[in-house]
């Protein structure tokens, strides 16, 4: 099966990066892609412990189930967790908080992320991004160079041939490394199903208070201000992606097991980000613009 070669490719990438870089870190949000990436990383170095810490960029606007899950996974596997907090970036004046009913701290994360990379002197940041998610990501290399300002230059990407990855860089620069580049949403779910991977409960159908915004179902949350005409109602939903509560929507679904989610994903007619991500709706090149300045 295709997924077998994907697993081998990802493990090879994780090991290659650890061999080439001095201070790697793995971004762990508790989302399904980062959970799968973490499992592959642990497998890649077994029986040795994970040779790098994991880091969560915390907007402070999370769904509580995800934070609970994050802490449980970290404790269960004895991982080192660094939390870089957007609230701390606001408190120290690095960024100004966003205001208004439709505000989201999503873009503020870039500053927090880059500050944390500089503070810990990380030279390799593993991200769970996949090329099938979004058209700018479809263009990105597996080993993706960032300059001293954390910027991605999509027109000057290093050629990346065969399995030969070039992670050489100058001091202060870093690489984003994407072991799941060639996975699709369906590959992720099949892996979750076949290997019994635990995910936050919000990935499976549950009853929740939601309201409708721009055709999407947003969870009722203390961090999201509802307009007067955005009435809350109860629905059976699940999340296809997990970001911060202000920019991630749920979908109506009764899929309550990995098996059922695989079946649902196989026949989905809407992409996962199209169905659920308010942050991609900003403009045609929303993701590319954010990535250029250092976003995930």
């Amino acid at each position: 099966m295709a997924s077998r070669s994907l697993i081998h490719e990802s493990i090879g990438i994780l090991r290659e990066a650890v061999a080439q870089f001095e201070r790697p870190v793995l971004l762990f949000s508790g989302g399904k892609d980062s959970v799968v990436m973490l499992h592959l990383a642990m497998a890649a170095f077994r029986p040795a412990p994970l040779p790098f810490p994991v880091m969560h960029i915390d907007t402070g606007h999370n769904l509580p189930e995800v934070i609970e899950f994050r802490d449980r996974v970290v404790a269960q596997h004895g991982l080192r967790l660094e939390v870089a907090s957007v609230q701390a970036s606001i408190d120290t004046g690095r960024v100004a908080d966003v205001q208004g009913p439709r505000s989201s701290r999503n873009t503020l994360q870039t500053v927090t992320l880059l500050d944390a990379i500089a503070e810990y002197r990380f030279d390799c940041v593993f991200g769970g991004a996949r090329r099938d998610e979004e058209r700018a990501r479809a263009k990105e290399r597996v080993f993706s160079h960032r300059d001293e300002f954390g910027q991605w230059d999509p027109k000057q990407q290093r050629p990346e041939l065969w399995g030969l990855y070039n992670g050489r860089h100058h001091r202060g620069e870093h690489f984003r490394v994407f072991p799941l580049s060639n996975w699709t949403e369906l590959d992720i779910w099949r892996f979750v199903r076949d290997h019994g991977i635990e995910l936050p409960s919000i990935y499976f159908a549950h009853s929740r208070q939601v309201f409708r915004r721009d055709g999407m179902l947003m969870a009722v949350s203390p961090f999201v201000e509802q307009a007067d005409d955005e009435h809350a109602f109860e629905a059976t939903v699940r999340f296809r992606t997990v970001g911060d509560a202000t920019c991630t929507a749920a979908i109506e679904s009764t899929a309550s097991t990995p098996d059922e989610v695989v079946d649902e994903t196989a026949v989905a007619r809407i992409t996962e980000r199209g169905a659920t991500r308010a942050d991609d709706r900003i403009s045609e090149a929303g993701m590319e613009d954010r990535k250029r300045t250092g976003y995930f």
Binding site: D132, R135, A136, K139, P154, E284, A285, E288
Partner: peptide, 21 residues
């Protein structure tokens, strides 16, 4: 569908490899 970069869409050409599945 495949020309994902701003410059590509503006110029109507493909500059870098796009991967599709």
């Amino acid at each position: 569908l495949t020309d994902g970069l701003r410059a590509e869409r503006e110029q109507g050409i493909t500059i870098d490899v796009a991967y599709r599945y």
